Lab assay of single mutants.
Amino acid sequence: QTQEFDNEEEARKAEKELRKENRRVTVTQENGRWRVTWD
């Protein structure tokens, strides 16, 4: 699953929550947008 964010702060917040659920999370930056991908 993927979700896009406008800034790193929001993306990192989402990453932190997903990691609490023991998910594999990848955060990438593309064209000024932050993308959080998880399984």
Rank of each mutant, 00 (worst) to 15 (best):
Q1Y: 07
Q1W: 15
Q1G: 12
Q1I: 12
Q1F: 14
Q1P: 07
T2K: 05
T2R: 08
Q3I: 15
Q3G: 04
Q3N: 05
Q3Y: 15
Q3E: 12
E4F: 15
E4H: 08
E4P: 02
F5W: 05
F5E: 00
F5H: 02
F5T: 01
F5L: 01
D6M: 10
D6L: 07
D6K: 05
N7M: 05
N7L: 08
E8V: 03
E8Y: 09
E8F: 04
E8R: 02
E9S: 08
E9F: 13
E9W: 14
E9K: 10
E9V: 10
E10T: 05
E10R: 04
E10H: 04
A11S: 03
A11R: 00
A11H: 00
A11T: 01
A11N: 00
R12D: 03
R12F: 07
R12Y: 07
R12C: 05
K13P: 00
K13I: 13
K13N: 13
K13L: 13
K13R: 13
A14V: 15
A14E: 03
A14H: 13
A14Q: 11
A14K: 15
E15P: 01
E15I: 09
E15L: 04
E15F: 08
K16T: 09
E17Q: 13
E17L: 11
E17I: 12
E17V: 08
E17H: 10
L18Q: 04
L18G: 04
L18K: 07
L18N: 03
L18S: 03
R19H: 03
R19M: 09
R19N: 11
R19T: 09
R19G: 07
K20Y: 08
K20R: 14
K20F: 09
E21F: 13
E21S: 12
E21L: 14
E21V: 10
R23A: 15
R23M: 14
R23W: 14
R23V: 14
R23F: 13
R23K: 13
R24L: 11
R24I: 14
V25I: 06
V25G: 04
V25Y: 04
V25D: 00
V25T: 03
T26K: 05
T26E: 14
V27E: 00
V27S: 02
V27R: 02
V27I: 09
V27H: 01
T28G: 05
T28Q: 06
T28E: 07
T28V: 12
Q29R: 10
Q29T: 11
Q29K: 14
E30L: 09
E30D: 09
E30M: 10
N31A: 06
N31M: 09
N31Q: 05
N31H: 06
G32N: 06
G32V: 01
G32S: 05
R33E: 03
R33V: 14
R33H: 03
R33N: 08
R33S: 05
W34G: 00
W34I: 01
W34K: 00
R35Y: 12
R35W: 12
V36G: 00
V36W: 00
V36Y: 00
V36E: 01
T37E: 11
T37Q: 12
W38Y: 06
W38N: 02
D39Q: 09
D39M: 13
D39F: 15
